[in-house]
Design a protein around this nucleic acid. Structure first.
Lengths: 311, 311
DNA sequence: GTGAAAGCGCTAACAG
DNA sequence: CTGTTAGCGCTTTCAC
C-alpha cells in the first residue's frame, strides 16, 4: 500500500468496468443551445449524479439536425444509463437503448412510445394557465411564438394554449415560429409587431424567445412591455426574475425534475423495468412583463407572486 | 457483418481503450456556476472535440470549495487529456497530471507553474482599457467589484485596473468582493451605492456580477445606468448585447480560446511536450451601460463599437 | 484465511 | 493475406 501511494497508483476504472459491467458513467445528450434551462439541468444532473458515484459523458447535438448519429456513439462507451434532454428525433434511439437493456430517461420531452421513461414539466397546465391569465388581464389579440415543431414541449404548449383560447371563444390567434432560437424569435416578433392590428399579448414557448421578443418590442418598436404589450414566457429561467427583465413565466422546477430523473434511473438500474412518466407541476410566476389581472394573483411567502385563478 | 448488424453489435470502446491506451475521452472540469461564459466554453469544447473524435467527461465543482477531491477521480477514467476551466486550487492537480503524462490545459486560468499550458483572455489589457475608457468618460469616483480572490482572472483584472487608475493619479478607489456570484455582487452593490459619495463608475470583474449590480442600481436605488452611474463588465456574454441590458464589456472571444485549447491538447498528445501560454486578445465593446467618452470609440463593420484610444 | 487463474472485449503481433 | 494468440488492468471464482 505504501508503495502504491508512493508510485501514485490509481485503479483503472476502465479496466474495472470491463469485468463489473458497470462504468459508473451516465451518457447525457442535449442540444448545444444557449438555453439556460438546459444549463441548469446539466449542472443539477452533474452534481446529483456525482453524489451517487456517477460521472457524466456529454453529447451535444445540433438542436434542429437531431442527434441520432452522435448518439450511436454513446452506447460504445458502455454507459450505465442515458439521459436525453429535449433532443429531437431520438425516440428511435431511446427504444434501441431500452432493447439492449440500457436505462433511458427523457428529460423535458415525451415520446409516443410509452416504453421509455420521461420527466417533463406540466406543459398543458402551464399553457392553459397562461391563456387564462392573459384572458383575465383583458387582452384581445393573442399571438404565439412557437418553438421547434418537432419538439413535444412545443406541441403540448401550443395545443393547450390554442385549445384554452378557443374554449373561451377567442379565435384569430396569430402564430409565428421562433424555432426555440433567439434569432428566430426576434424575426417572429418583427412579423407580429409590424402588423396593423398588432397583438396585445404574446406567449412565447420559452423564456429565451420571450427575451428576444422583449428586446425587439422595446428597442425596435418602442413598446412599453407590460402596458402596451404583454409578454409571457415558459421555464422561469434565472433571468426572468431580474428586475430589468421581470418576465412573467411558467416555472419548470429544475431540481424536482432532476430528482425524478435520478430516481427513475436508479429504479431501472435496480431492475424495476416499469417505465414511468413523471409530469412535474409548476406555477405561473407573475411579474411585470404582462398586464396583471385585477384578481387571481396570490403572493407566496418568498415574495413571488403566482397565478391561482385557473386551478 | 450481416449477423453483426442484425444482432446490433457495437464495438466496446472501453475494452478497446484498454489495449490502445486511448480512451478518446477528455476530462473537463468546471465550476457549477450559472456563468454563461463557462456554458459557452463547454458547448464549444464539446462540439470541437466531437469533431476530432473525442467525448467529454464532465466534472463540475463547487466554485469556492475547489475541486481536487473530485478531480482525483478523473484520472481513474484514463482520460486522454484534461481541460480545467477556471477551477481554483487545482494547480497541484494539474502538475500531477503532467507528471503522469496526461496533457492538461487551463482555460481562463493561469497557474504559477509555467509547466502547465494555459489559455486565457487578456485580463491585463482588458482591465487597462476599461480604466482608460472610464477615465476618458470623465468619471471621478471609481469602484471595483471583485471576483473570487483565489482566481487568477480576478487577480489580473484587479491589479491592472488599480494600477492603471493609480498611474492616472486616481486613488481612493472602492473595492467590494462579489465572489463571482450574482448574490455577492448584489450585496457589494448595496454597500457601494449606500455610501454618501457613491461611485460614478463601477467595473465588475465579470458580466454576471455587472448585471446583478445593474439590477440593484436600477431597482433599489433608481439610478439611470449609463448616466448617473456607469457600469462595465468583463466577458461580453451574449446577454450583454441585449438592448434591454446593453452592457459595455471587454469581450473574451470564446471560439478562439477554445481553438487554442484544442491545438494545445493535440500538440501535447502528439508528443510536443512544450507548455504554451496563450493570451487571447479581446476588445472593449462599447454599449450604453457606461458614459461614452467624446472620442476614442470606433465603429466596426458589424455595427459593434469598440474602444480604441488605449492602444 | 491467502493465492493463483480465468476472463471481461478488444487489438497487435505473430504464425501459417 | 487470413487465423490464432497474448495481454491491456481489473474482479471473481476456485483451489489451497
Amino acid at each position: 500500500m505504501a508503495a502504491a501511494t508512493q508510485l501514485g497508483y490509481r485503479p483503472n476504472q476502465i479496466a474495472r468496468s470491463l469485468i463489473t459491467r458497470r462504468s459508473n458513467i451516465i451518457g447525457v445528450a442535449m442540444p448545444n443551445t444557449g438555453n439556460p434551462f438546459y444549463r441548469n439541468a446539466l449542472n443539477a444532473l452533474s452534481v446529483e449524479f456525482a453524489r451517487i458515484g456517477y460521472r457524466i459523458l456529454l453529447f451535444t447535438s445540433d438542436p434542429v439536425a437531431g442527434s441520432d448519429p452522435i448518439l450511436a456513439e454513446v452506447l460504445r462507451y458502455q454507459v450505465d444509463a442515458v439521459v436525453l434532454i429535449s433532443t429531437s428525433l431520438s425516440s428511435h434511439f431511446a427504444e434501441e437503448c431500452m432493447q439492449i437493456g440500457v436505462p433511458v430517461v427523457l428529460l423535458n420531452r415525451r415520446t409516443d412510445s410509452a416504453a421509455v421513461s420521461s420527466v417533463t414539466g406540466d406543459n398543458t397546465r402551464g399553457a392553459r394557465a397562461i391563456a387564462a391569465f392573459l384572458l383575465a388581464g383583458g387582452h384581445r389579440r393573442f399571438a404565439y411564438v412557437a418553438g421547434l415543431e418537432t419538439s413535444s414541449t412545443n406541441r403540448d404548449r401550443e395545443a393547450a394554449f390554442f385549445a384554452a383560447l378557443a374554449q373561451a371563444g377567442v379565435d384569430g390567434v396569430e402564430r409565428q415560429s421562433g424555432h426555440y432560437t433567439a434569432e428566430g424569435a426576434a424575426q417572429a416578433a418583427r412579423v407580429l409587431l409590424a402588423r396593423r392590428s398588432r397583438p396585445d399579448a404574446i406567449f412565447c414557448a420559452n423564456d429565451d424567445m420571450a427575451f428576444a421578443v422583449m428586446n425587439v418590442a422595446r428597442a425596435e418598436y418602442g413598446l412599453d412591455i407590460g402596458k402596451t404589450l404583454s409578454i409571457v414566457g415558459f421555464d422561469d429561467t434565472d433571468l426572468a426574475a431580474w428586475p430589468m427583465l421581470d418576465l412573467t413565466s411558467y416555472a419548470q422546477p429544475v431540481q424536482p425534475m432532476v430528482a425524478h430523473v435520478l430516481e427513475s434511473i436508479v429504479a431501472q438500474l435496480e431492475g424495476g423495468v416499469q417505465a414511468t412518466h413523471h409530469v412535474v407541476r409548476g406555477e405561473l410566476i407573475v411579474r411585470r412583463s404582462a398586464r396583471r389581472p385585477s384578481s387571481g394573483v396570490e403572493r407566496l411567502d418568498d415574495g413571488r407572486e403566482i397565478w391561482r385563478a385557473s386551478d
